[in-house]
Nucleic acid binder design. Structure first.
Length: 310
DNA sequence: GCAGTAATAT
DNA sequence: CATATTACTG
């Protein structure tokens, strides 16, 4: 009888989760081979010319506090259509690359995993604090820019609004005899919606949610894959990776280990009680979109998310 | 400057 | 088609 459970999110709303305090969003390390394959190229002994800033981060003045070690790296494949897989053979051979000044960031591919992190961040931030910048910081996905999140957030909000209109319809409308499931929901449909995201000032109409276990998330390494567009056969692949040291001495010398979140069973219940009245297929599971984001037009998409666990 | 949205571009 | 980008507004 603790209303706290019900209002746990209320606390979030009132309390501002300091980015510094944010717990290390779980993310395991990338397998060494993977990391090596991608780009853990030891920088050449040559002096790094400052003329070519390795991190043209859009949000430059984003002083990232020592927020744990984050290895989340968005994999940005150069816009060359990724002639090769990029995964293979990198081994440092590609090392010598001079980032052109006019390098644009390739498209970011929102994988279900990445999106899940996004949703989790939003859920934990609360609707009020769920602003692009905060979300981006909470996600701590390296390479993610505010624009990325903003753009996605825009779409996500539209999706939520659409969802609120229909509550008896699960996203996994695989039955076929379903009314309007926008094909654009595919991405969003693969991630469990925390069950709120509705209007905060709205009285609970019919919310039956046993519990919201979405308190902690455990995920493996996150990588956002970016695909290049264009029939360009071979192009430089730009792999951007950034890792932070977590063992750096804290500014105050005061560093305490946060509570290590245990791998709590993530029993996620579908927010929408899929009520199948007909004898149709009632599979409340999320659509397993194992299909790679294929694009029909000679566009190569590299979707590498070995994170099978969701 | 940042956030929200719609329209548009790639 | 999924994102990115832009223009406009608050």
């Amino acid at each position: 009888m603790r209303e706290e459970d019900s209002n746990w999110f209320a606390k979030w709303e009132e309390e501002l989760p300091s980015p510094e305090e944010l717990m290390p969003l779980s993310q395991t390390l990338i397998t060494p081979d993977l990391a090596l394959a991608f780009d853990i190229r030891n920088p050449p002994p040559n002096h790094n010319h400052q003329s070519t800033p390795p991190r043209p981060q859009t949000t430059a003045h984003s002083s990232q506090p020592n927020s744990s070690a984050e290895f989340d790296s968005v994999e940005l494949v150069g816009s060359g259509g990724g002639g090769d897989g990029g995964v293979a053979g990198a081994g440092g051979g590609v090392g010598s690359d001079e980032p052109a000044r006019t390098l644009k960031r390739p498209r970011l591919v929102w994988t279900p995993q990445l999106h899940k992190r996004f949703v989790d961040a939003v859920a934990h931030l609360g609707i009020k604090n769920a602003v692009p910048k905060t979300i981006m910081q909470l996600m701590s996905v390296d390479g993610l820019t505010r624009e990325n999140v903003a753009s996605h957030l825009q779409k996500y909000r539209l999706y939520l609004k659409r969802m609120q209109g229909i509550s008896s319809n699960g996203s996994g409308g695989v039955g076929g005899s379903n009314v309007s499931v926008d094909p654009t929901d595919h991405l969003f449909a693969s991630s469990p919606v925390p069950a709120h995201f509705l209007h905060p000032g709205r009285p609970n109409t019919d919310h039956f949610l046993p519990f919201m276990p979405v308190a902690t998330m455990q995920q493996h390494h996150q990588m956002a894959a970016v695909v290049g567009s264009g029939p360009g056969p071979h192009h430089h692949q730009q792999l951007q990776q950034q890792f932070r040291h977590f063992g750096t001495s804290p500014p105050n010398g005061q560093f305490e280990h946060s509570f290590i979140r245990q791998s709590q069973q993530q029993v996620q219940r579908m927010g929408a009680p899929v009520h199948i009245s007909n004898g149709s297929v009632a599979s409340p599971l999320y659509v397993e979109d194992s299909e790679s984001p294929r694009v029909g037009n000679g566009r190569k998409v590299l979707t590498l998310f070995p994170t099978g666990d969701d």
